[in-house]
Amino acid sequence: MTARHDGGADQERQVIDWLLAGDPALRWQVLRDLQGAPDTEWQAERARVASEGVGARLLALAGEDGQWAGGSFVPEGFTPADWKAEGQPWTATTYSLTQLREFGLDPSTPRLQEIVELVGRNSRWDHDGQSFWDGEVDTCINARTLADGSYFGLRLPTLTAWMLAEQQPDGGWNCERANGSVRSSFDTTINVLEALLELERAGQGTVETRRARHAGEEYLLERGLFRRKSTGEPADPGYLDLRYPWRWRYDVLRAADHLRAASLVDGTAPDPRIAPTIEHLRNRRRADGRWLLDEELRGRVWFTLDDGAGLPSRWVTFRALRVLRWWDAGQRA
């Protein structure tokens, strides 16, 4: 583990400049969340996501039927043998839509609105041929579908009600509930929490969705974001690794960034129970003020966003800085 490092103002400026030298999908968020730029400035940069960089590249890869790679969850023609040889693919429609949401592509973008309609008309889930925006039976898949649909301007009340009914007694969610699991999963829970927060941002939150979200957030907080409640040991050593894109995977930076976003929506201060995660993030900072990408998830992708595992990552660095600034501001308040 890298020794804790807190750089000075000059180094911070160099890191910000490095982030701003990245893609428009990252730059607009740096301007808004780290620079405090005027709305007109970051919104102008955000508008470029549809026409430049990785956002435009991904948007252009959608087919005439609105789908990516010809499928909802896996590419057309992708076989179990392919999965075994390559790992889980990330190029089909569900993960592509999620990536565009995380890039912050403006939901009003005409081509995106066309895609959303085409996907509803043409895309069917591999599970049992369900219409895409109706969801299927996997909680993680349905959570991303709910988050994406809400962000892109859809109302999905049936899927929302289904998600609330899937909540476990301990406050979280688990994709294995249909197979009898009564314990929640960190991975599943973070996907659902992001969906419920997206509902809130879209003006579709209710007393019930807020109650469910708060209970799910409490599930994570009770466990210090990465520990087993029963033993206090890390539930998975990989939860302490830092990565992006996350896909369906959980890690402490993803959880902390969600809690940051939720606190801004709820108007609440940072919860002190995430202090160990904050210390972990500080300890992982390199002497040059940046953070490394610990892992690139195995599997087929359209393109990569950083230079590779073990190297400095703009996306990880941005999110780590954003979390630390939120935390530090909360301590000064």
Rank of each mutant, 00 (worst) to 15 (best):
T94D: 12
L31N: 02
E86Q: 15
R46G: 05
S96R: 03
V74T: 11
K84E: 15
V49F: 13
E86H: 15
R32F: 08
G66W: 03
A47C: 05
E76G: 10
G87V: 11
R32V: 09
E76Q: 11
E86D: 14
G55F: 08
D33A: 11
G36F: 00
Y95G: 04
G36Q: 07
R46A: 13
F78T: 00
A37M: 06
A81P: 06
G63K: 05
G63F: 01
Q88K: 13
S72T: 15
E41H: 07
E64C: 00
W90I: 03
A69N: 05
A60I: 03
W42Y: 13
P75D: 01
S51L: 06
G71L: 10
A56D: 09
R32H: 11
Q35F: 03
T40H: 10
G87H: 12
L59S: 10
G70F: 08
L61R: 14
G66H: 02
G63I: 08
A69P: 00
Q29N: 10
R48D: 01
A62K: 07
Q29R: 15
D65T: 06
G87C: 08
T79C: 09
P75H: 01
P80C: 06
P89K: 11
A56P: 09
E52C: 08
R57F: 08
G66F: 04
Y95R: 04
W90P: 04
G53A: 03
V74M: 06
D82V: 00
K84A: 15
A44W: 02
